[in-house]
Every structure is written in C-alpha cells, then in structure tokens.
Simulated assay, not measured.
Amino acid sequence: MRPGPRNLITDVAGLVVGNAHDAGLRSGVTVLTAARPFTAAVHVMGGAPGTRETDLLAPDRLVQQVDALVLSGGSAFGLDACSGVAQGLRAMGRGFAVGDQRVPIVPGAILFDLLNGGDKGWSASPYPALGAAALAAAAPGFGLGSAGAGFGAMTGHWKGGLGSASAVLPSGITVGALVAVNALGSVTAGDGPWFHAAPFEEGAEFGGLGPAPRMAPPDAPLPLKRQGEATTIAVVATDARLDKAQALRMAVAAHDGMARAILPSHTPLDGDLVFAAATGAREMQDPLTDTFQIGHGAATCLARAIARAVFLARPLPGDPQPCWSERFGG
C-alpha cells in the first residue's frame, strides 16, 4: 500500500471535508460529504458514545445512503451541528425524497471538550452555525491537528486533534481515515516521543521516529479523565462498491487501528466509534481479497491518522495540556 496524493480521506474520489471552529469556544465541527449520497455504516466499541441517527445505518434499515457524516466537539450540545448541516443540505436540494420534501440524512458523533478552558457560557448553542460553516467549507483539502472537531480535543497525555491518512491498495481501491482524537489513553510510549502507531507510518508523516526503543512493560493504567470526558470518533472510507453490511465490516476492522494507536482504547469511559463510508465508484474484482484488504487498509489508515492528529496539534494560550510539537519539535 502507498498513501494517496493528499494523504487525506479525500483521496477517495468524490469525498470532501470541511472544518469550522471557534477559538474562544475551543471547539469545532468537521463534516464529510459528497456530491451524491453514499453508503454508510457505524460500529461503536466505546462505553460512553454520543450519536445522532446511527440506528438507521444498520443493514436492515430503510435508508441505504446518507448525505453527510458529522464529527463535533461540544458533548451532547455538539449534536446540534448535524441540524446546521442538514439545513445547509436541504437548501441545496439534497436529502431523502419523501413526496415533495427532501430530508437530508446526517448521522453524527460527538466528543467531550467542555472542560478545555474555552468559553462555554453561550446562551444559544453555537453548534448549528458551526455545522453549517463546516459544510460550506467542504473541499478536497482541509486542515489537520488543531482544526475542526479536533480543535479543543485532549488525550490522556498530549493535546489531541484532527487527523487523516489514505492508502491505495494493490487492486487500485483507495481507502482513507478521518479522526478526532480526544482519547482517555495515550498515543505515545510513556513520556517519550514515540507513537504507538509507528510500525504503520508512511515516510515521516508523524515524525519518522520509529517505534520506542523498548516498549514499557504492561501495567494497570489509571484513568486521567472521568466518565463521559473522552472519545475517539472516526470515519473510514473507500471508493469500492460496498453494501451496508460490507461497510459495517470495514468499520469493525478499522477499530483494530484505534487499538494499535491508543493505549488503552475502547474503555468504558470512551465513546469510541467508527463510521464507514463507501462511494461505490469502483467495482471489486475479487470480493474476497478486496474486502479483506479494505479492512486491513482502513485499520492501518486509522492508526496513522490518530498519530498525525496529535503530531500536528498546535498550542494555544491557556492550553490545559502540552502539545507533542512543543515538547519534541514536530
């Protein structure tokens, strides 16, 4: 596998991503969408998720495709971002046709960033406007690190952020990942600079430092956040033609990448989940081999994207956590 030309999830042709954030709020929103509806699924492994419209992504539900996927800060308030995105899509004439009406299908997930030092004293939720702004900004190129849904994210040790990565499989199928990292666990080995995802790094996309000289012996970590304060929310995507059941298997496989990059992950205190998106632009030539490699590629891209999120995060005055780049010069 090799990265796509942008090393972003938008190397999956047709997908675009938009970010919006409020520096005073220390929070933001990220939207993934496309010119036409796409197949989607979701798999949740964390014990404290916050979601909207994820039940309809099950393979047996009526709606087979969605118009956008939303990742947002703001805890439960951030689910309002989906309403801003839906309003914007409706204005474009997008959505599931019901008579003469259009209902945009916009599943979303949130992370907790209410205790990161930002001004959270709003009288009306800022998230619908942030969602609309992120949709309006959607493009093939977009910012990483302290951007979008990752703007105010934190982890168990370093400041979190927004990450992305891509890979082109031997078949020519492209896969990619997009992630907002606000995890309870750590993405690095101890207090050192070495990322757990190092064995999967392409070039020097997160420093090129390689694995830690010696992995720390197993121990019993204590949570550095409380229940409901942590999560890693992600989207993995491909241009392969997948049905909802196959997309679900891609999401399940991608969780391996989360576990490779964050220790520990999928805890009772995290809301870890992965959306899957499939544009259907490329037919699979060997469904057995292709679906096998798509799952592996999605997991690998997600591990790399998680490390890139933390590697590219940048400091703000008053940050409650250090940036990896401040300590190690990313």
Rank of each mutant, 00 (worst) to 15 (best):
G190W: 11
G210W: 12
H196F: 15
V17E: 06
P128V: 05
G152A: 07
T232G: 01
G84I: 08
G47P: 12
A132G: 14
G152S: 10
G329E: 05
V252S: 02
D239Y: 08
G228P: 08
A149S: 11
L32V: 12
G95L: 01
A48K: 06
G280F: 08
L25R: 13
A204R: 14
P107C: 05
H43K: 02
A13G: 11
A86M: 07
H266P: 01
H196R: 08
I110W: 10
A136T: 13
T30H: 12
R61P: 00
Q101T: 13
G160I: 09
R314Q: 13
D319E: 11
A129E: 15
P213G: 06
A309E: 06
G156S: 01
A137E: 12
F195L: 00
P223F: 06
H21V: 00
L15C: 03
V274I: 09
A81M: 06
I306M: 05
W324T: 03
G161P: 05
F200M: 02
L288F: 13
H157P: 00
M92T: 09
A278C: 05
V29L: 01
S164N: 07
H266D: 01
A48C: 10
A204Q: 11
L79D: 03
V16D: 02
V66P: 10
V310P: 09
P213C: 02
S83K: 13
L162D: 05
G117R: 07
S325H: 11
A261I: 03
A149I: 01
A234S: 15
R304T: 05
D219T: 15
G28W: 13
V236G: 03
P37H: 11
T291Q: 14
A68W: 09
G84E: 12
G295P: 09
A276F: 11
A177T: 07
R61I: 00
